[in-house]
Write a protein that binds this DNA or RNA. Structure first.
Length: 506
RNA sequence: GGCGACGUGGCCGAGUGGUUAGGCACAGGUCUGCAAAACCUUGUACGGCGGUUCGAGUCCGCCCGUCGCCUCCA
């Protein structure tokens, strides 16, 4: 494939990617709700669209990448009914809701930075766009696709369905939705139809996050923020909307409906918000879904530190990234310690290969061209491009890098004696490999700081053990020599009844 | 039950109907005082049953199983 194709959830097939207004591309991705630490699911979604972003940039597009931050509290459905998630955490931790949101936003950013994600161009917050959301609700009301009840405003799905098609994204039809939810809840709700959803919700007295509106004090419904913020920064119709498959229904379905109801009066002007809807698949743990109730919801922070009962060790952020990229984004991905350890080793080997590649000096060597090697390196970039063009198949790109690795190793090994490929081929390949590794996949050589700490700890333990043996044997000359020479390196030893501690001191 | 995505060798995972995905593990080899690392080489597969086809992991049907959604959580 010499042109980029993407799988569009809206049409359920791969389509040639053709921006609405080249060279500009607008991309909106559903970001995190900042009331808790980011987990693998957040990582997968963010990394998936980081790849899309990077690749489009590399293709020369001017991309405006918007990823929202949901910091508006909404209702939970368990025992804490009536309290928003953000609020609930605030009470627990005696913090302001916005303080909670900021804290988890910071943590999210920290984790994403660690995995080498490019930051979006705009990260709009729902709470920063309340007036725009109110305005959008008003517009939808004016257009006759919503109704107000007791200070809340609901989207009128059946009314919308008369003119537009509700359910086109998720493949549902209204009758089925109605049939499925008719049994209970009816009558308890202010909604006229079970499929209707809130655009604006009246705040209960104890709801902290609240704003004035034409319908009284309240807060926006879940779906409206994305419609509003995408419209504000990307226009009523833009190129790509991304998110996890779990958001397909009802969130994205509702977004499409809101967008059409708000920005178009008639079906002939239908825009469906975005041209391409991209969805990444979910992550499981040893075949099971992740969830707090199952005890296997592991935060990224815990992966990075290894501080979780289910984790055998710590996994570096880039190993997590690499692991995620080894699968195609539309497949479910199962993780386990063995799977991650496999990725860790593979990633290490790739890094070693890259180091060797950078160390190879092709100049002035005897050339005895190996046709297979030559061919391998020459077709590398085109192969990788074809895989990326095929709906961002990073798994195949990585496999292709491993296919080239033996050649790199051979060239490295034979250096100084023979050089089995044309120098120009080699130079172009090296450049291409860098492009794929750094620019497309967003990988980078592991910083060895963390490893070095471990190494130093290990070294110190060995030294201290040797010294302990020397002291036991009353070999004071050796034990003092160890202490004095360490001291010269600003490493101080302190003998305690429980053993010997060490620390840095200038 | 409905909608969607899937079920590939010991594990993770690509796969556009016809000849090797790849990684990890395992095995053999090179190197090595021994070992490790590194490098080289190799084996093991397509959930089940039918169907289409000269030929199916790849298309069609049914069955079984997994995951997500179907909630005013976002």
């Amino acid at each position: 494939m010499d042109k980029l194709s993407v799988y569009n959830s809206l049409t359920r097939k791969k389509e040639l990617f053709e921006p609405l207004n080249p060279p500009f591309v607008g991309m909106y991705v559903c970001g995190p709700t900042v009331y808790g630490n980011a987990h693998l699911g957040h990582a997968r979604s963010a990394i998936t669209f980081d790849i899309v972003y990077r690749y489009l940039l590399d293709q020369g597009y001017k991309v405006r990448y918007v990823r929202n931050i949901t910091d508006v509290g909404h209702l939970v459905n368990d025992a804490d009914e009536g309290e928003s998630k953000v609020e609930k955490q605030a009470r627990l931790e005696q913090l302001e809701p916005m303080e909670v949101a900021q804290r988890y936003y910071n943590a999210y950013t920290r984790d994403m930075d660690a995995m080498n994600l490019l930051r979006p161009g705009i990260e709009p917050r729902a709470t920063g766009h309340i007036p725009e959301q109110i305005e959008a609700v008003q517009k939808i009301l004016e257009h006759g696709f919503a109704y107000e009840v007791n200070g809340s405003v609901y989207f009128d799905v059946p009314k919308y369905h008369e003119k537009f098609q509700y359910g086109k994204l998720s493949g549902r039809d209204l009758e089925q939705i109605l049939a499925g939810s008719r049994s209970d809840l009816e009558g308890l709700s202010e909604k006229r139809h079970p499929a209707d959803f809130a655009l604006w919700k009246k705040a209960s007295p104890n709801h902290i996050m609240r704003w004035n509106s034409p319908w009284g004090e309240g807060f926006p419904g879940w779906h409206i923020e994305c419609t509003v913020m995408s419209t504000k920064y990307l226009g009523p119709k833009y190129d790509i909307h991304g998110g996890g498959m779990d958001l397909l229904f009802p969130h994205h379905e509702a977004e499409i409906a809101q967008s059409n109801a708000c920005n178009c009066h008639q079906p002939e002007n239908m825009q469906d918000e975005a041209k391409y809807w991209l969805h990444n698949n979910m992550i499981t743990y040893e075949g099971q879904k992740m969830g707090k109730s199952l005890g296997n919801a592991i935060s990224l922070e815990e992966f990075f530190s290894g501080n979780h009962p289910l984790l055998a060790q710590a996994y570096s952020p880039l190993v997590i990234r690499f692991f995620i990229l080894q699968a195609h984004y539309r497949s479910t991905l199962d993780f386990s310690n063995t799977a991650l350890q496999a990725s860790e080793k593979a990633y290490k080997r790739l890094n070693e290969g890259l180091k060797r590649l950078d160390g190879i000096q092709p100049e002035g060597k005897v050339v005895a061209v190996n046709e297979a090697f030559e061919q391998n390196l020459r077709t590398f970039l085109d192969d990788c491009r074809a895989y990326m063009n095929d709906d961002f198949n990073t798994a195949r790109v990585i496999a292709r890098m491993f296919d080239a690795l033996p050649v790199v190793n051979q060239l490295y090994k034979a250096q100084g004696k023979t050089f089995a490929v044309e120098q120009e081929t080699f130079r172009q390949f090296r450049q291409a490999f860098h492009k794929v590794f750094y620019d497309w996949l967003g990988l980078k050589a592991e910083t060895e700081e963390g490893q070095q700490h471990e190494v130093i700890d290990g070294l110190m333990k060995i030294i201290i053990d040797i010294r302990a043996e020397a002291r036991k044997a009353k070999n004071w000359a050796l034990s003092d020599k160890i202490r004095d020479e360490l001291s010269a390196l600003n490493i101080k030893l302190e003998d305690t009844p429980n053993g010997t501690d060490w620390y840095y001191e200038k």
